[in-house]
Amino acid sequence: MLQSVWEKTLPQLLTLRAIIRKFTELLAFELFIFTVVGIHTTVLVAQTFAEVQVRGEWFFSAMDAVFLCVYVLEALLKIIALDLDYFRNPWNDIDFFIMIMMMLDFVLPLLLSMGQATHSDASSLVRVLRVFKGIRAVRVLRLLLTLQILENLQELTSTFALSGPSIGAILLLMFTFLFMFSVDTHDLFQSSDPQHFGELFDTIFTLFQLFTLDDWSFIYLDCVQTGASYIIFFLMAYIIIEYFTFLNLVIAVLVDNFQLALIKRQELQKHHWGKRAPSRGFLSPLTEGQKATKLEDDEAILAQLIKNMEGPITPTEKQLLFTYLQQMASIEHLQQKFRSQAATTDKIIDSFFEVGDTSIRYGE
């Protein structure tokens, strides 16, 4: 019986799911969510003013409940429409995380007022959850990235995404050298300057401060007064490796990926315009929609060539001539692809040398 009921209701459920999916893909639905996100961000900014927060505490509490209902409804509709594919989109993961944090921030004070948890534990947990309130403003970034007019912002964001693995490797090297220098300077200068190098964690904090070139001369003078003037060699090596080498590597990775993103956008634009105005010569590359017409044109040209030739031609010779012309068309197509790839390589090399020349000028 249950199976028969399920078989009857399954088509209706699938139809309902398709309707919900179309609804979540509507532009009006996206505009509504973005409007709610914008209002929510404005409310968060208003809550930073103490006087406004005190006078409108009841209003902000009611608005938080409204925003929470909208976000929960949005997540439920998208999960029904997309199933587990909902969590494959990083933006959906961020939205879901923000919704969970808002739910906990809304439920925990109620549990605290009902006496379901101790005051100290619940208060500390509420303070931790309130830290995540600022994360709600991240959804505004999604709104900005969807605007087509902000192409530079989109490319900048894609540059950070492409640079993530390389910058992560550089940061790993930076903190490795930081730890190595911390161990050495702690062993050598803990008696000379116990305030900065007395403990290992103090040493790590001091070297991180030196990474910003902050007060390194005062640390040197303090060690000189205690007879440890040779610390200058450690300071110079540390600053050259960490600041001038690794930090410039991070900047170089960002600049290089940004140039590649610009070149990629230019190539996509050329490809887009190339599709709009394809060439129609006999030896030009073919598209899928033109193959039938192009084949007829080639046969007509082949017939004209055979007509102009002196003497009879056998079917085998005709087939060989037609194959020869097809091979020539393929060669021309490959030459065009090679020219396009060579032009892209030249642009990448020119951009690389332009970045190098700019760095040299700034260095001078």
Rank of each mutant, 00 (worst) to 15 (best):
W6L: 06
E7D: 14
T9P: 00
P11V: 06
T15S: 05
R17Y: 09
F23T: 09
E25V: 04
L27M: 05
F34G: 01
V43I: 12
F49L: 06
F49I: 04
Q53L: 05
V54Q: 07
F59M: 13
F60V: 06
A62Q: 11
A65I: 15
C69V: 12
C69G: 11
A75V: 11
L82F: 13
L84R: 09
N89P: 02
W91L: 14
W91A: 11
N92F: 00
D93V: 10
D93E: 06
F96R: 02
I98H: 03
I98R: 02
M99Q: 02
I100F: 02
I100K: 02
M102V: 06
G115D: 02
D121N: 05
L125C: 01
V126E: 11
V126A: 08
R136E: 10
T146I: 09
N152S: 07
L162Y: 06
I167W: 00
M174Y: 12
L188A: 07
D193Y: 13
Q195S: 15
H196K: 05
H196R: 04
H196S: 10
F197I: 03
G198W: 00
L207S: 00
F211R: 01
T212V: 09
D214H: 14
D214K: 12
I219W: 04
C223G: 05
Q225E: 13
G227Y: 10
S229A: 13
I232A: 04
I232L: 00
F233H: 13
F233E: 11
A237Y: 06
F244K: 05
F246R: 09
N248V: 02
N248A: 07
V253Y: 10
N257H: 11
F258E: 03
A261W: 06
Q269G: 06
Q269V: 10
W273P: 01
G274H: 04
R276G: 01
S284A: 05
A292G: 03
T293P: 06
L295H: 00
D298R: 08
I301F: 15
Q304C: 07
I306W: 03
K307G: 02
N308A: 11
M309D: 14
M309C: 14
G311N: 05
P312Q: 08
I313N: 01
T314E: 06
P315A: 02
P315Y: 00
T316K: 14
L325M: 08
M328I: 10
S330F: 14
L334G: 05
F338S: 07
S340N: 12
A343M: 15
T344D: 10
K347T: 13
F353E: 15
E354C: 09
G356K: 13
G356A: 10
D357M: 15
D357H: 11
I360F: 13
Y362F: 06
Y362W: 11
G363Q: 09
